[in-house]
Design a protein around this nucleic acid. Structure first.
Length: 274
DNA sequence: TGGCAATACTG
DNA sequence: CAGTAT
DNA sequence: GCCA
């Protein structure tokens, strides 16, 4: 288990404790510890057993040390597992909706046993949120808008984040002999403020025959940070990068590069119109 | 053993 | 003012 | 929960 995973569990535990109504300072400690672990230069898993070094990390005390031992020893944190049984994983998603906090989520759960985005949206549409204690019409309206905003942004990346990722991938591609151009298309090329996934178009001699394409794809999968290959075909490979961004790379013969660029830049509606 | 950020919004 | 969210 |  790496530091990122450990921190992730601690963050989630903090969120769940908040829904559970735990002491806010104790919750903060979990977040502080998660942050400290995320930023720690060495792997916590390598330091296990070395209590002195672990306790030297600011934000890690006696109790958190026990939590770390439990996570690395048993692969899980009992508190985390129990809270997930008591409540619902979908509540963690609800927490990301602006204006929806742990208290309100717990309130909705206790009143309706509803814990997911769609369910809460329905309740709001039916006017069932405003009748809850402390809620009102204004809350309900804001909640509906917040859910709409969440849906628009969820699973997408801000353009500057996508741009940096795309540039790294394009560089990797261009370092391969026989690649002339590697250019991002899709919503990134259209300059949208958020991007769902990356579409990168490649052309050059390396794209022109079967053997060469296979060799190029073999090179592509060496890309640092590539976590999972989703699909590998003759002319296209899809993969997921660290950080969950999905990438499609398409290999194109030079004489179809222009039309492909047009098509894959989109938008879909624009293509239909054309 | 006490403190742990400060503030805006809503009912 | 109290509770909640950021 | 952690820290001074």
């Amino acid at each position: 288990m790496d530091n990122k995973s450990i921190a992730g569990i601690l963050y989630e535990t903090a969120d769940l404790m908040e829904i559970d109504g735990a002491d806010s300072f104790r919750i903060r400690s979990y977040r502080n510890a998660a942050e400290a672990i995320e930023a720690h230069p060495q792997q916590i898993s390598d330091l296990i057993g070395n209590d002195k070094q672990l306790l030297a990390i600011s934000g890690i005390g006696k109790g958190m040390l026990q939590n770390l031992k439990e996570m690395l020893g048993e692969g899980r944190l009992k508190l985390h597992a129990e809270l997930l049984t008591k409540y619902r994983p979908s509540m963690l998603q609800l927490l990301k909706v602006q204006g929806l906090g742990p208290k309100t989520i717990a309130l909705i759960w206790s009143a309706y046993q509803v814990s997911d985005l769609e369910g809460v949206e329905s309740l709001a549409r039916e006017g069932k949120i405003r009748i809850l204690p402390r809620m009102g019409e204004k809350h309900e309206t804001k909640l509906l808008k917040a859910i709409e905003d969440y849906r628009r942004i969820a699973g997408r990346f801000l353009i500057d984040v996508a741009e940096k990722q795309a540039e790294k991938i394009a560089d990797h591609l261009r370092h391969y002999p026989g690649v002339e151009k590697a250019t991002p298309a899709g919503s990134l090329r259209r300059g949208r403020e958020t991007v769902g996934d990356l579409d990168i178009l490649v052309t050059g001699p390396a794209c022109c025959d079967d053997t060469e394409r296979q060799k190029l794809i073999d090179h592509i999968i060496k890309l640092p940070g590539l976590m999972e290959i989703i699909a590998r075909g003759e002319n296209k490979i899809s993969f997921r990068m660290r950080g969950d961004m999905q990438v499609d790379v398409r290999l194109l013969a030079p004489d179809s590069f222009g039309s492909a660029m047009q098509y894959f830049t989109g938008s879909k509606a624009h293509n239909v119109a054309l």
